[in-house]
Nucleic acid binder design. Sequence first.
DNA 1: ATAAAACCTCAACATTAGTTGAGGTCAATA
DNA 2: TATTGACCTCAACTAATGTTGAGGTTTTAT
Lengths: 159, 159
Amino acid sequence: MTIVRSSEMRRELTVGEVAERSGVAVSTLHFYEAKGLISSNRSRGNQRRYPRSVLRRVAVIKVAQRTGIPLAEIQAALTVLPDDRPLTVQDWARLSESWHEQLNERIASLMALRDHLTSCIGCGCLSLRECPLRNPHDVLSMEGAGPRLMDATEEDGQP
Amino acid sequence: MTIVRSSEMRRELTVGEVAERSGVAVSTLHFYEAKGLISSNRSRGNQRRYPRSVLRRVAVIKVAQRTGIPLAEIQAALTVLPDDRPLTVQDWARLSESWHEQLNERIASLMALRDHLTSCIGCGCLSLRECPLRNPHDVLSMEGAGPRLMDATEEDGQP
DNA sequence: ATAAAACCTCAACATTAGTTGAGGTCAATA
DNA sequence: TATTGACCTCAACTAATGTTGAGGTTTTAT
């Protein structure tokens, strides 16, 4: 008969513990709770008590934020799932797949921008209507236009 | 002797014209001016009059913003240059090269995140301290660690 | 000359993502 | 038990990036 140490019995974490382990400030955890991203039980004395699964949830939030997804959207994605039960591996798979796609799109658009930037460095055409950098959505339509001379047009001449 | 049309004589643009041509709102141009990103001359009646070169400047601002650079930094970069004279091709080359590098870094970091996401989809390890997604700055240090089993650790067990 | 459209300033508001502080309560330790 | 550190709520503040509106003036077109 071994005595179970109380630190192992305590299944719930205080807000300070969650802050330390997850690396986000206590005030941020309050904030996330107010926004419905996480939730807590309360002790008799009204202090927050978190199941350990909150750590995964916070980790998911942080990853999603790094991909550039706003909190409101993260919240929406998370609350599709019952907010009481811990995230399962399947939940995480679904979320990460969807975010993976968004991330790919962001990367693709930044790469397109970078390529335009590469080809436009020094060309001086930037304020001309034909410049590919001015037409972010014409990623495909620019092929075949060829480089423009830096002729002053009506728009940008500085004679 | 041809008569020069007044629309061609008018070398300066009103704020409304700049807004229309550049695609940013009048209020935004006011805002940019307040922040020192652009400047204007005034008419006798105190209305803004812009040299055509402001269009290039606004275009540069918009490109920089798309790369994720905050206005304050754009402003700093732009005001290194004398703010009265129009941007030259050399100015633009210098700016775009520096932004090109920052853009590359952002892309690289998003790609690293994406790769982690790819390898972690479904693995469920997210809240474990060893998960590569939790260690954004260990992009290199993770090699050799090998995939972790999904054993519950002290941190994340949900027994 | 007059009316409409465009412009002016300045202040307040909006949104996202939090942080800070005041005033008061709870819990763990000496 | 006393005290100290952690916690509570609520409101106000920050910072970035603008937008909206009120009240008044200038420009342009008829």
